[in-house]
Design a protein around this nucleic acid. Sequence first.
RNA 1: GUCCCCAUCGUCUAGAGGCCUAGGACACCACCCUUUCAAGGUGGAGACACGGGUUCGAACCCCGUUGGGGAUACCA
Length: 467
Amino acid sequence: MSVVTRFAPSPTGFLHIGGARTALFNYLFARHHGGKFLLRVEDTDLKRSTDEAVQAILQGMRWLALDWDGPEIYQSRNADRHREVAEQLVTDGRAYKCYCSPEELAEMRENAKISGGAARNYDNRWRDRDPSDAPAGIDPVIRIKMPVEGETTIADLVQGDVTKANDTLDDFIILRSDGTPTYMLAVVVDDHDMGVTHAIRGDDHLNNAFRQLHLFEACGWDVPEFAHIPLIHGADGAKLSKRHGALGVEAYEEMGILPEAMCNYLLRLGWSHGDDETISREQAVEWFNLDSVGRSPARFDMDKLLNLNAHYLKVADPARLAAGVLRDADAAGITVSPDAEKRLVAGMPGLASRAKNTHELYELSSLYLVDSPIEMNEKARHSLADDAARQALNELAELLKKVTSWGEADLDGIAREYAESRDLKLGQVAQPLRAALTGSNVSPSIFEVMAVLGRDETLARLENAAN
RNA sequence: GUCCCCAUCGUCUAGAGGCCUAGGACACCACCCUUUCAAGGUGGAGACACGGGUUCGAACCCCGUUGGGGAUACCA
């Protein structure tokens, strides 16, 4: 049997961290088994669903490179089919019409609460009542008949066997009085119609699974395998809220996170493969399994995400990172010369190993982005205010003018020789050089900077700083 | 309230009864490297929630307690 999974977000907001991880696990499981990964937008609650949210979710999925198979499915478009199924269940005697008013329902819920579990939220009062008793002028809902005794066990692929007494399951609504399907019905019908073999979703759906299981059976359909993955909590252990990380994935993109870092982080949150920490997409597809998904909720840890991000920045293609920096520069209204662009790509590895996110990368990039004369910060100015430092720079500049091969090692050698000849420590030469060349007291190796800058730009900056 | 789930360093986790003196990663501390800042290297501190069983032997199995989370809608 070929595997079919689906990610089924409701478009009431952005694609948050938890949803992204659910999507990732579904994606990985399907790819691992060579199956299909489908995307279904659960927009049956038309009041709360928005097109912006749909777009945000699709965008987030694309950013994370979680490509789904086939066009996305909109649940609201299957409403007719859902209604047919509900009516068929009534005809088959597996479901029935209920004419209760909201007041009656509220009363029953109240009773259930004070009864301490002895009463149900709905007492199945219309279950066996004659349809001829139906009051006039009331549109009924359709409820599914649930078993009244015994117990139901779900063999969850992550949580193991979970058993629930059937008398805690009341006859829930599958079709609203306005004829629209509820979530419970829509999920079951769509999962069946889509051929879903594995429903991998958040732990908050575990309770629903019991109801859905019986709905599948009432319809005479195969029940998919269930896998309920633990939720992600905030750093304080409480449910993830907007305050600590239930942000849309695009917020992380804005924070300067690379999508591969995000995926890697999300994967390791609740899933492990021995001691492996940095895991590529290929390895993830090869290794992913449900057995290794942990059963306890995990806390979101920004530091670890950032650490992973720094790693992926280090190994990322320089041209790709440079393109990102250029976009930021453009957005900031900075014009970058073709020469500067070349320098940026050449110097990118040295820059990337010093950044934790793309914003830092952008700031670090400034030394290559502009052409002489460059701006000096306070520390750099201070360092160049020293006469001895400026003299050293001038003397070194003279030597550099005569240099024939402009490699990092060559330049390093010249500076060392010069420092030795004047009885200076290398730092006494390198720091003024750094100030003159980068306008800052912090940068990659100054000889690397010189090599990347090239002879003309280096000498121009040197001359500018010495005067 | 009721039902369901969970429980190893601060955090993410390894661990499927003896390989555990509990391993790795992030964060933290120290040292090394070093022209600055990072990166990197080496080392350090740091956990089996508690109480009972079962067993020759328990982080691993069972029960309870405590703590945390989820679900309890004509939302999804």
